[in-house]
């Protein structure tokens, strides 16, 4: 798997504030989460890779070349900022065509790409409306579209779910997953929301106070536990009683029953208990640690 970004001893200071403190990490193909609280150094790292600011020491490399000459590198990188950045009086179709040309595409190709990419992010007929009339969710989609309209190798997303309601957030994360896995564009997802990173990313880099606290594949952190999670719509209490009669240790977590053990006998006992109790089963799976649990215990 190719290394797209590499930070080596990357340090950046703003006055007396040390934003990044000799940071080393690599970003591979796929979707990588850059996770950290506000002020952890995420946006500074993105700005260094885009060549918008110079490091005080160390190197920020894109595809093995230092981004000290960022102009050409930016042809193959996309960026979606956290803040609003769309002109309100312009239509999405016109804006995307313009941004594709600004990324170096000829006018005809820019028009074709603009239409295709807007369709992929779910903006169809609305693309001929001025963007000032768009909802927050639609604006986030156009922001993502402008970041990928020139078909970059890598796109940097800064807090892409900021300001979205739960449904909008879910749709945005699904779109990011599609962009990374179906479109084949690698992604760095900068977020302070652990759930977003966990649900979307293949890898994670955790920044804390300008230093790398953890990095690796998500699976490495969220390895399976020796428990099963059983989710039912109805009959939770009857199910727990039925499992207890079969000497299966359980605990209740919201609408789920956590069952100790993952052997064949446990699966059989769960099956029989579901039938006996009449519970409406809709999910049965080995339970994984969440990133939250991992970082709380380390």
């Amino acid at each position: 798997m190719a290394i797209l970004l590499r930070a080596t001893g990357l340090t950046k200071r703003f006055g007396s504030t040390l934003a990044l403190d000799s940071v080393d990490f690599e970003v591979l193909e796929g979707i990588t989460g850059l996770l950290g609280a506000n002020g952890a150094g995420k946006t500074t790292a993105l700005r260094l890779f885009l060549g918008l600011i110079e490091p005080d020491s160390g190197k920020a490399e894109f595809l093995g070349a230092a981004t000290s000459d960022p102009i050409m590198a930016r042809e193959r990188i996309g960026y979606m900022p956290e803040h609003d950045c769309l002109p309100s009086s312009v239509t999405a179709a016109e804006f995307l065509t313009h941004m594709a040309q600004i990324s170096g595409l000829p006018p005809h190709e820019a028009r074709v790409r603009s239409t295709d990419v807007l369709r992929h992010v779910g903006i169809d007929e609305e693309r001929y409306r001025p963007m000032g009339s768009y909802s927050t969710g639609m604006k986030q989609r156009v922001k993502l579209a402008q970041a990928i309209v020139h078909d970059p190798l890598l796109v940097l997303l800064d807090e892409p779910t900021a300001g979205l309601d739960p449904v909008g957030r879910q749709e945005m994360l699904e779109l990011i997953r599609r962009t990374g896995h179906d479109f084949g564009i690698s992604i760095v997802l900068s977020s302070h929301l652990m759930g977003d990173v966990e649900r979307t990313c293949d890898h994670v880099i955790v920044l804390d106070g300008g230093r790398v606290a953890q990095q690796g594949a998500i699976e490495q952190f969220t390895e399976e536990t020796e428990t099963l999670v059983v989710q039912v719509h109805e009959g939770l209490e009857a199910l727990v009683e039925s499992l207890a009669r079969r000497n299966i240790q359980t605990s209740v977590d919201g609408a789920s029953v956590i069952v100790q053990g993952v052997g064949q006998a446990t699966y059989d006992a769960v099956r029989d208990s579901v039938v006996e109790s009449g519970a409406l089963l809709y999910r049965l799976a080995p339970r994984r640690h969440t990133l939250g649990e991992v970082f709380r215990t380390r």
Partner: peptide, 14 residues
């Protein structure tokens, strides 16, 4: 005002 310039400055353009 609409911060579109942030999008220009991350493209192949100084």
């Amino acid at each position: 005002r609409e911060r579109v310039i942030a999008l220009y400055l991350v493209r192949p353009l100084s």
